[in-house]
Protein backbone atom coordinates (compact mmCIF):
# COMPACT_ATOMS: atom_id res chain seq x y z
CA UNK A 1 0.00 0.00 0.00
CA UNK A 2 2.79 2.27 0.95
CA UNK A 3 4.52 1.41 -2.27
CA UNK A 4 1.42 2.35 -4.20
CA UNK A 5 1.27 5.69 -2.40
CA UNK A 6 4.84 6.24 -3.29
CA UNK A 7 4.35 5.46 -6.92
CA UNK A 8 1.21 7.53 -7.19
CA UNK A 9 2.87 10.34 -5.31
CA UNK A 10 5.82 10.17 -7.64
CA UNK A 11 3.61 10.36 -10.68
CA UNK A 12 1.71 13.26 -9.16
CA UNK A 13 4.97 15.05 -8.48
CA UNK A 14 6.12 14.59 -12.02
CA UNK A 15 2.86 15.90 -13.38
CA UNK A 16 2.93 18.83 -11.02
CA UNK A 17 6.47 19.64 -11.98
CA UNK A 18 5.68 19.36 -15.63
CA UNK A 19 2.63 21.56 -15.42
CA UNK A 20 4.25 24.18 -13.24
CA UNK A 21 7.43 24.22 -15.23
CA UNK A 22 5.65 24.54 -18.53
CA UNK A 23 3.32 27.25 -17.24
CA UNK A 24 6.23 29.18 -15.84
CA UNK A 25 7.88 28.93 -19.20
CA UNK A 26 4.80 30.35 -20.86
CA UNK A 27 4.51 33.07 -18.28
CA UNK A 28 8.09 34.00 -18.84
CA UNK A 29 7.40 34.35 -22.52
CA UNK A 30 4.44 36.51 -21.71
CA UNK A 31 6.44 38.68 -19.34
CA UNK A 32 9.24 38.99 -21.80
CA UNK A 33 6.77 40.10 -24.42
CA UNK A 34 5.27 42.67 -22.08
CA UNK A 35 8.69 44.05 -21.32
CA UNK A 36 9.29 44.27 -25.04
CA UNK A 37 6.02 46.12 -25.34
CA UNK A 38 4.41 43.19 -27.09
CA UNK A 39 1.32 41.24 -26.27
CA UNK A 40 3.02 37.89 -26.33
CA UNK A 41 1.67 34.40 -26.58
CA UNK A 42 -0.86 33.05 -24.10
CA UNK A 43 0.56 31.53 -20.91
CA UNK A 44 -0.31 28.06 -22.14
CA UNK A 45 1.66 28.50 -25.35
CA UNK A 46 4.36 26.12 -24.12
CA UNK A 47 1.85 23.34 -23.71
CA UNK A 48 0.74 23.82 -27.29
CA UNK A 49 4.31 23.85 -28.50
CA UNK A 50 5.06 20.70 -26.58
CA UNK A 51 1.98 18.96 -27.83
CA UNK A 52 2.76 19.96 -31.38
CA UNK A 53 6.32 18.75 -31.04
CA UNK A 54 5.05 15.47 -29.69
CA UNK A 55 2.82 15.20 -32.71
CA UNK A 56 5.57 15.75 -35.19
CA UNK A 57 7.17 12.83 -36.87
CA UNK A 58 10.63 11.90 -35.80
CA UNK A 59 11.87 10.36 -38.96
CA UNK A 60 15.58 10.21 -38.41
CA UNK A 61 18.23 9.51 -35.87
CA UNK A 62 22.00 9.58 -36.06
CA UNK A 63 22.53 6.60 -33.81
CA UNK A 64 21.25 5.21 -30.57
CA UNK A 65 23.03 7.71 -28.40
CA UNK A 66 20.94 10.47 -29.92
CA UNK A 67 17.85 8.62 -28.80
CA UNK A 68 19.32 7.97 -25.38
CA UNK A 69 20.31 11.57 -24.86
CA UNK A 70 16.85 12.96 -24.22
CA UNK A 71 16.01 9.87 -22.25
CA UNK A 72 19.00 10.51 -20.02
CA UNK A 73 17.87 14.05 -19.56
CA UNK A 74 14.37 13.01 -18.64
CA UNK A 75 15.63 10.37 -16.27
CA UNK A 76 17.86 12.84 -14.57
CA UNK A 77 15.09 15.39 -14.18
CA UNK A 78 12.61 12.95 -12.81
CA UNK A 79 15.06 11.23 -10.51
CA UNK A 80 16.26 14.56 -9.20
CA UNK A 81 12.69 15.55 -8.64
CA UNK A 82 12.22 12.43 -6.59
CA UNK A 83 14.84 13.65 -4.15
CA UNK A 84 13.48 17.16 -3.77
CA UNK A 85 11.08 17.84 -0.94
CA UNK A 86 8.25 19.53 -2.75
CA UNK A 87 6.33 20.43 0.36
CA UNK A 88 7.72 20.89 3.82
CA UNK A 89 6.19 17.86 5.43
CA UNK A 90 6.15 15.60 2.46
CA UNK A 91 2.43 16.02 2.19
CA UNK A 92 1.01 14.69 -0.99
CA UNK A 93 4.36 13.98 -2.48
CA UNK A 94 6.06 11.41 -0.33
CA UNK A 95 9.04 10.89 -2.53
CA UNK A 96 12.52 9.76 -1.69
CA UNK A 97 13.41 13.17 -0.43
CA UNK A 98 14.50 12.03 3.00
CA UNK A 99 17.11 9.74 1.61
CA UNK A 100 19.35 12.10 -0.26
CA UNK A 101 21.45 15.07 0.50
CA UNK A 102 22.64 18.18 -1.28
CA UNK A 103 25.89 16.87 -2.64
CA UNK A 104 24.17 13.85 -3.99
CA UNK A 105 21.63 16.12 -5.61
CA UNK A 106 24.31 18.29 -7.18
CA UNK A 107 25.85 15.34 -8.88
CA UNK A 108 22.57 13.80 -9.87
CA UNK A 109 21.69 17.02 -11.64
CA UNK A 110 24.73 16.63 -13.87
CA UNK A 111 23.73 13.20 -15.02
CA UNK A 112 21.09 14.46 -17.42
CA UNK A 113 23.00 17.26 -19.11
CA UNK A 114 25.93 14.95 -19.64
CA UNK A 115 23.71 12.33 -21.23
CA UNK A 116 22.06 15.01 -23.28
CA UNK A 117 25.47 16.24 -24.33
CA UNK A 118 26.33 12.77 -25.50
CA UNK A 119 23.14 12.64 -27.48
CA UNK A 120 23.94 15.99 -28.99
CA UNK A 121 27.42 14.79 -29.76
CA UNK A 122 26.30 11.85 -31.73
CA UNK A 123 24.37 13.98 -34.17
CA UNK A 124 27.64 15.12 -35.60
CA UNK A 125 26.53 18.71 -35.84
CA UNK A 126 29.39 20.98 -34.88
CA UNK A 127 26.98 23.47 -33.39
CA UNK A 128 25.80 20.88 -30.91
CA UNK A 129 29.29 20.16 -29.72
CA UNK A 130 30.11 23.84 -29.46
CA UNK A 131 26.98 24.40 -27.45
CA UNK A 132 27.86 21.57 -25.14
CA UNK A 133 31.36 22.85 -24.55
CA UNK A 134 29.95 26.25 -23.76
CA UNK A 135 27.42 24.78 -21.41
CA UNK A 136 29.99 22.72 -19.57
CA UNK A 137 32.33 25.68 -19.33
CA UNK A 138 29.59 27.85 -17.97
CA UNK A 139 28.67 25.15 -15.51
CA UNK A 140 32.17 25.22 -14.11
CA UNK A 141 31.67 28.93 -13.72
CA UNK A 142 28.49 29.01 -11.74
CA UNK A 143 29.02 25.83 -9.76
CA UNK A 144 31.70 27.50 -7.68
CA UNK A 145 29.61 30.24 -6.04
CA UNK A 146 26.68 27.87 -5.88
CA UNK A 147 28.65 25.24 -4.03
CA UNK A 148 30.14 27.90 -1.80
CA UNK A 149 26.66 28.98 -0.86
CA UNK A 150 25.63 25.43 -0.18
CA UNK A 151 28.72 24.66 1.84
CA UNK A 152 28.11 27.79 3.85
CA UNK A 153 24.64 26.52 4.66
CA UNK A 154 25.97 23.09 5.47
CA UNK A 155 28.44 24.55 7.89
CA UNK A 156 25.90 26.82 9.45
CA UNK A 157 23.35 24.16 10.15
CA UNK A 158 25.56 21.10 10.43
CA UNK A 159 23.57 19.21 7.95
CA UNK A 160 23.82 18.38 4.31
CA UNK A 161 20.30 17.20 3.98
CA UNK A 162 17.66 19.38 2.37
CA UNK A 163 15.05 18.30 4.85
CA UNK A 164 17.49 19.07 7.59
CA UNK A 165 17.95 22.59 6.27
CA UNK A 166 14.22 23.04 6.07
CA UNK A 167 13.78 21.86 9.62
CA UNK A 168 16.50 24.18 10.77
CA UNK A 169 14.70 27.09 9.17
CA UNK A 170 11.45 26.02 10.69
CA UNK A 171 13.05 25.90 14.13
CA UNK A 172 14.81 29.23 13.90
CA UNK A 173 11.79 30.85 12.32
CA UNK A 174 13.79 32.82 9.80
CA UNK A 175 14.52 31.93 6.27
CA UNK A 176 18.05 31.20 5.28
CA UNK A 177 18.00 34.07 2.86
CA UNK A 178 17.92 36.31 5.90
CA UNK A 179 19.98 34.28 8.28
CA UNK A 180 22.76 33.76 5.78
CA UNK A 181 22.35 36.58 3.28
CA UNK A 182 25.70 36.22 1.56
CA UNK A 183 25.06 32.63 0.74
CA UNK A 184 21.73 33.64 -0.69
CA UNK A 185 23.27 36.33 -2.83
CA UNK A 186 25.92 34.00 -4.13
CA UNK A 187 23.35 31.34 -4.84
CA UNK A 188 21.08 33.75 -6.63
CA UNK A 189 23.91 35.01 -8.78
CA UNK A 190 24.80 31.42 -9.57
CA UNK A 191 21.17 30.85 -10.42
CA UNK A 192 21.47 33.35 -13.26
CA UNK A 193 23.78 30.95 -14.96
CA UNK A 194 21.86 27.90 -13.95
CA UNK A 195 18.70 28.97 -15.73
CA UNK A 196 20.56 29.93 -18.86
CA UNK A 197 18.55 33.06 -19.56
CA UNK A 198 20.27 36.04 -21.03
CA UNK A 199 23.03 37.04 -20.60
CA UNK A 200 24.00 33.45 -19.98
CA UNK A 201 22.12 31.83 -22.84
CA UNK A 202 25.38 30.99 -24.50
CA UNK A 203 24.55 27.33 -24.83
CA UNK A 204 21.60 27.58 -27.11
CA UNK A 205 22.42 30.94 -28.66
CA UNK A 206 20.00 30.59 -31.60
CA UNK A 207 21.67 33.13 -33.80
CA UNK A 208 25.19 31.82 -33.31
CA UNK A 209 24.80 28.15 -32.81
CA UNK A 210 21.41 27.36 -34.28
CA UNK A 211 20.15 26.45 -30.81
CA UNK A 212 23.26 24.54 -29.92
CA UNK A 213 22.96 21.04 -28.53
CA UNK A 214 19.43 20.56 -29.72
CA UNK A 215 20.08 21.71 -33.26
CA UNK A 216 19.61 18.26 -34.73
CA UNK A 217 16.70 17.34 -32.52
CA UNK A 218 13.14 18.00 -33.54
CA UNK A 219 9.87 16.33 -32.82
CA UNK A 220 9.77 13.93 -29.94
CA UNK A 221 13.39 14.51 -28.98
CA UNK A 222 12.70 18.16 -28.57
CA UNK A 223 9.51 17.44 -26.72
CA UNK A 224 11.35 15.24 -24.24
CA UNK A 225 13.99 17.87 -23.75
CA UNK A 226 11.47 20.62 -23.37
CA UNK A 227 9.42 18.81 -20.78
CA UNK A 228 12.44 17.60 -18.84
CA UNK A 229 13.76 21.14 -18.97
CA UNK A 230 10.53 22.35 -17.44
CA UNK A 231 10.69 19.72 -14.75
CA UNK A 232 14.26 20.68 -14.12
CA UNK A 233 13.34 24.30 -13.75
CA UNK A 234 10.77 23.32 -11.19
CA UNK A 235 13.34 21.17 -9.41
CA UNK A 236 15.81 24.01 -9.18
CA UNK A 237 13.24 26.52 -8.05
CA UNK A 238 11.91 24.18 -5.42
CA UNK A 239 15.40 23.52 -4.27
CA UNK A 240 16.04 27.23 -3.86
CA UNK A 241 12.80 27.64 -2.04
CA UNK A 242 13.55 24.70 0.19
CA UNK A 243 16.99 25.73 1.23
CA UNK A 244 16.66 29.49 1.28
CA UNK A 245 13.03 30.26 1.83
CA UNK A 246 12.01 27.67 4.34
CA UNK A 247 10.15 25.43 1.96
CA UNK A 248 6.45 25.58 1.37
CA UNK A 249 3.58 24.20 3.39
CA UNK A 250 1.14 23.99 0.55
CA UNK A 251 1.01 24.35 -3.15
CA UNK A 252 -0.06 27.96 -3.25
CA UNK A 253 2.82 29.11 -1.14
CA UNK A 254 5.12 26.92 -3.15
CA UNK A 255 3.97 28.55 -6.35
CA UNK A 256 4.28 32.02 -4.89
CA UNK A 257 7.76 31.44 -3.62
CA UNK A 258 9.05 29.66 -6.64
CA UNK A 259 7.57 32.24 -8.95
CA UNK A 260 9.04 35.11 -7.05
CA UNK A 261 12.47 33.61 -7.06
CA UNK A 262 12.10 32.68 -10.68
CA UNK A 263 11.66 36.30 -11.55
CA UNK A 264 15.24 37.09 -10.64
CA UNK A 265 16.93 35.39 -13.57
CA UNK A 266 14.02 36.13 -15.84
CA UNK A 267 13.94 39.84 -15.25
CA UNK A 268 17.70 40.09 -15.28
CA UNK A 269 17.76 38.19 -18.51
CA UNK A 270 15.14 40.17 -20.37
CA UNK A 271 17.18 43.33 -20.34
CA UNK A 272 20.56 41.75 -21.00
CA UNK A 273 22.47 40.94 -24.12
CA UNK A 274 24.57 37.82 -24.34
CA UNK A 275 27.97 37.22 -22.82
CA UNK A 276 30.78 35.41 -24.47
CA UNK A 277 31.71 32.18 -22.75
CA UNK A 278 34.82 33.39 -21.02
CA UNK A 279 33.04 36.55 -19.96
CA UNK A 280 30.32 34.46 -18.44
CA UNK A 281 32.83 32.35 -16.56
CA UNK A 282 34.69 35.40 -15.35
CA UNK A 283 31.43 36.96 -14.24
CA UNK A 284 30.82 34.04 -11.94
CA UNK A 285 34.32 34.20 -10.61
CA UNK A 286 33.89 37.84 -9.76
CA UNK A 287 31.18 39.07 -7.46
CA UNK A 288 29.42 35.75 -6.96
CA UNK A 289 32.68 34.24 -5.83
CA UNK A 290 33.26 37.16 -3.54
CA UNK A 291 29.87 36.70 -1.94
CA UNK A 292 30.53 32.99 -1.75
CA UNK A 293 33.70 33.62 0.19
CA UNK A 294 31.86 36.08 2.40
CA UNK A 295 29.22 33.44 2.97
CA UNK A 296 31.83 30.92 3.97
CA UNK A 297 33.46 33.35 6.35
CA UNK A 298 30.11 34.36 7.75
CA UNK A 299 29.13 30.75 8.21
CA UNK A 300 32.34 29.73 9.85
CA UNK A 301 32.24 32.67 12.23
CA UNK A 302 28.65 32.24 13.32
Amino acid sequence: MELLTHILGAIATVILAFVVGMSYGGIVRKITARVHNRIGPPWYQNFIDAFKLYGKTTAIHHGWMQIMGPAFLMVSSVVTLMFIPVLTNGGWFPNLNFEGDLIFLLYLMVFGPLGMALGAGQTGNPNSAIGVTRGLSQMVGFEIPWVMALVALMIQFDTTSITGLMEAQAQSGTWNMFSSPFAFIAAVLAMLGMFRYSPFDIVGAPTELASGPVSENGGKYLFTMMSSGSIFAFVKLTLYVDIFMGGADNLVILLLKTFSIYMIPVLYGIVSPRYRTEQAIRFFWGWPLFFGVLALIYASIF
Binding site: A59, H62, T123, G124, P126
Partner: peptide, 12 residues
Protein backbone atom coordinates in the same frame (compact mmCIF):
# COMPACT_ATOMS: atom_id res chain seq x y z
CA UNK B 1 9.49 4.76 -37.48
CA UNK B 2 12.83 6.49 -37.39
CA UNK B 3 15.65 5.52 -39.59
CA UNK B 4 19.33 6.00 -39.29
CA UNK B 5 20.91 8.73 -41.33
CA UNK B 6 24.59 9.31 -41.51
CA UNK B 7 26.15 12.15 -39.60
CA UNK B 8 26.72 13.95 -42.88
CA UNK B 9 23.00 14.52 -42.95
CA UNK B 10 22.92 17.48 -40.63
CA UNK B 11 21.49 20.91 -40.83
CA UNK B 12 24.41 23.01 -41.82
Amino acid sequence: KTRYVSTKDISS
